[in-house]
Every structure is written in structure tokens, then in C-alpha cells.
Write a protein that binds this DNA or RNA. Structure first.
Lengths: 216, 216
DNA sequence: CCGGTAATTCTGCAAGCGTATAATTAGTTG
DNA sequence: CAACTAATTATACGCTTGCAGAATTACCGG
């Protein structure tokens, strides 16, 4: 009756799943979990709603996949910028801190996504496992960087103290991340990175210096 | 037709509004914003859905009121436990830190509520104002405590440095709060408070000691 | 150029959503 | 005890939601 059907192109499974996941993440970041309806996700991904259930058994499955993708990309980006560089341990630690406290990590979108998934993390065991893995990966990497930096400074630390330092430094980063992401106008550009480096340096007794990209 | 109508008691405006707000907060904490439907809120508050629109012009209004109540209670609880005590400045600061890193503040419910409102805070200007006020109240109080503690230790700090210290200490608290609330099983009981006191003490160069309630 | 396959669209449904409004009932006042 | 008022319930409406299944169409191998 309604004349012509909508034209479409066939795509690979990976491509379409990726599009749908990206669309879901965009919507959750912008409008919270409520905004990620199957219809909205499909429209943003450029397909019709029915296709979602061709690639995901249920909407909940898509959301879980989106969360896994989000966590993985967060840590992957982080690691990628650190690997392949030939910095000394202290510079690597400084870079890690600086990266954590700048976009795209410190950003309204990231914190919005993080918050949008929290209640799922608290209730769904699968989501919780994903979260736990990501969090521990982040903290473990930070702990290794701290260990290397302390060792390079001639002050190696025993495991128990190392764990405490990592938790504290991680908390400092997370706190600055939170505040800078939710109320960005409260802080001058680069202030968060500077503060993070200075205070983490103070906690560890290491003079951390920023050597990031150009500064005006 | 359906026989008897439901029995009810008339209540004051404050009481009913409070009940509805409490119900909304419970639901958001447990199941995220999605769970706080008008029907669910009404059922939990022991009334029928229509009553919500007798006390709030729209559901959005109720949610905004709930958020304001949440933020206010968070800071009020905090302040109340500190006022009326005759502790020296350093003990007051220690108490502030310790309170922030124990239930009910450091708790799955609180972080669940906080996260559940974030996307509203980011989009709605009214919500944003509420958030900003609460955040600044918390940080300003912390800053005053730090100022007093430093002054009492004979090392008063100038405003600019004081602001930086407050932001950093606040971030450390927030980070520990976040991690302890989302993954409580990662930390031993009291570990967060201990860590917070130790590391904030290290940042400020003050020996903060815990003198909270009994310890096993 | 012609089938076959599965990726994609389309249509529809039952349930739940927020909201509007009329009907009732509890409590107050004289 | 009867009238009055406002708190509360009840009912209904239009819209959206996630999901299901049938119909179509793009692409691939012959």
C-alpha cells in the first residue's frame, strides 16, 4: 500500500553491531538510560527497530554489549597512548595521570555514560563483572607505574604499601575526574591535570612534571 | 460496580510530599531512574497515582524535589554531626573525612542515587544549580576545616593554595567514596576511612587521627 | 540472468507510561 | 447531624515501549 519500501544495504554483523552499540552509547550519554529506546537506537544507527533483535537477542543484551564496549574502549585508549612510547617510569606515570584528567576521559560524555550504567552494574552480575575487570585493570596499571617510578627513584615499596598508594592515587584521579567532568566550568583548562600531577607527586614523594601537548 | 473503594486517611501536605519523595528516592536508588514510574512511586508511598499530581504539578517536578531533598539531606547530615561538638580543628577535619567515607554516605544507595540524577543534572539547569550548590557547600566546608587545621598547626595558608588543597582533598574523598560505594567488597571495613585520613594527612602535612566509634 | 539465503523492513500487539478529570470520601465547621 | 471543602481514589485516554512474526529485498553463487 504505502508504495516503496525503504532502501537498505546489507552490512556485516560486526559493522551493524558496532553501529547499534555506538548509537546506544550516544543516546545514553546524552539523555540517560531512558533515552536509549529500541526505536531511538535504530533511528540513530540508520536502521529500523526490528534489526536490533536480529543481532541481539534482547535489548538488555545490546545494553550489556554497549557497556562492555565502553569499558574496553576506555582502558584501551588509555593503554594505547602509553604503549610504544619510550618514556622513563616517572614520565610514564605523569602521562597516565595527565591523560586521565583530560578529554576524552574527563568529559561530560564519559561521566554520563559511567553514571548511566551504574544501576545496572549494581544489580546485574554480568555487568558487575565487566565493571570490576575494567576498574582493576586501571588500578593495576596505575600500581605498576607507581612501582616503577618509585623503584627508579631508588625508593622501592613493598606490596602492601604499594596497594595503598595505588588506591589513594586512583581515588585522587577519580575524584578530580568526577568533578572536572560534571562541573567543567569550575576549573581552568589544564588545572585538573596540573593539580593531579602535583598532588600525586606529593603523595608519592616524586616530582611529577607535565610534558603534554602544547600549552598557550 | 467494583464494590468498595479503597480506604484512606487524609494527611498534611508536608507528610505526603515527604512520603512521595522518599518513595521516589528509594526506587531510583534501587533500580535507576527507569524504576521511578508514577505508579511505582505511588504504590511505595501507599497512595494511588493520581495523588502525585495533586501535590506536584508534574512528575518532573517531583523528581526535581526529590533531588533537592537528597542533596540537602546529604550535606545536612554531614554538618549536623560536626556541629555541637567541641573538637579541636584537626579532630574536626578528621571527623569530616571519616564521616564521608562511612555509611550512609559511602554506600551503594547514595552512589546509586547520585548516578541516577547525573544526566538530569547535566541537562536541566535547575537540577544543575542544585548540584552546584551542594557540591560547593561540601567543598567550602572542607576548605574551612583545612584552613582551621593548618592555622592551628601554625602553618596558615593563603587563599589560592587553600583552594587547591581543598579541591585535592575533596577529590581524594570523592574518589574513595566512589570506589568504596560501587565495589565495597574490595575494601576491608574501615579501610577507606583509614586510607582517607592517612593520605589527606600526607597531602596537608598534618597527622590526622581517627577517633570514631568503636573498632573491633 | 536466475534462484537461494538471510539481512532488513514492515506491521501489529499487549503492556506500561504520564496525564487529565470526574467521582468519592474523610475530616471540619456550624 | 448536615453542609462544605479538599484530599484521595478511580477511570480513561493517547502515546510509547519492547517484542514478535510475516513480508520483502539486497546480495551471492551458479
Amino acid at each position: 500500500m504505502s508504495g516503496t519500501r525503504r532502501r537498505f544495504r546489507r552490512e556485516g554483523e560486526a559493522q551493524r553491531q558496532g553501529d547499534l552499540i555506538a548509537a546506544a552509547l550516544d543516546l545514553i550519554a546524552a539523555g540517560g538510560p531512558q533515552a536509549a529506546t529500541v526505536r531511538a537506537i535504530a533511528e540513530r544507527a540508520g536502521v529500523t527497530p526490528g534489526l536490533i533483535r536480529h543481532y541481539f537477542h534482547t535489548k538488555e543484551d545490546l545494553i550489556a554489549a554497549a557497556y562492555a564496549s565502553f569499558v574496553e574502549q576506555m582502558t584501551a585508549d588509555h593503554r594505547a597512548t602509553l604503549d610504544g612510547t619510550t618514556l622513563d617510569p616517572m614520565a610514564r606515570l605523569a602521562r597516565f595521570v595527565s591523560l586521565s584528567l583530560s578529554p576524552p576521559l574527563t568529559d561530560a560524555r564519559t561521566v554520563g555514560l559511567w553514571a548511566g550504567f551504574i544501576h545496572l552494574v549494581q544489580r546485574d552480575q554480568h555487568m558487575r563483572a565487566i565493571h570490576e575487570r575494567g576498574y582493576h585493570a586501571f588500578r593495576d596499571e596505575l600500581q605498576m607505574l607507581i612501582a616503577d617510578a618509585l623503584a627508579a627513584a631508588g625508593r622501592p615499596a613493598e606490596p602492601a604499601r604499594l596497594r595503598a598508594e595505588a588506591i589513594a592515587c586512583n581515588a585522587l584521579i577519580d575524584g578530580l575526574w568526577l568533578e572536572g567532568s560534571v562541573l567543567p566550568e569550575d576549573f581552568a583548562p589544564g588545572e585538573l591535570s596540573r593539580l593531579g600531577l602535583e598532588k600525586i607527586g606529593a603523595l608519592l614523594g616524586l616530582p611529577l612534571r607535565d610534558h603534554a601537548e602544547a600549552d598557550g
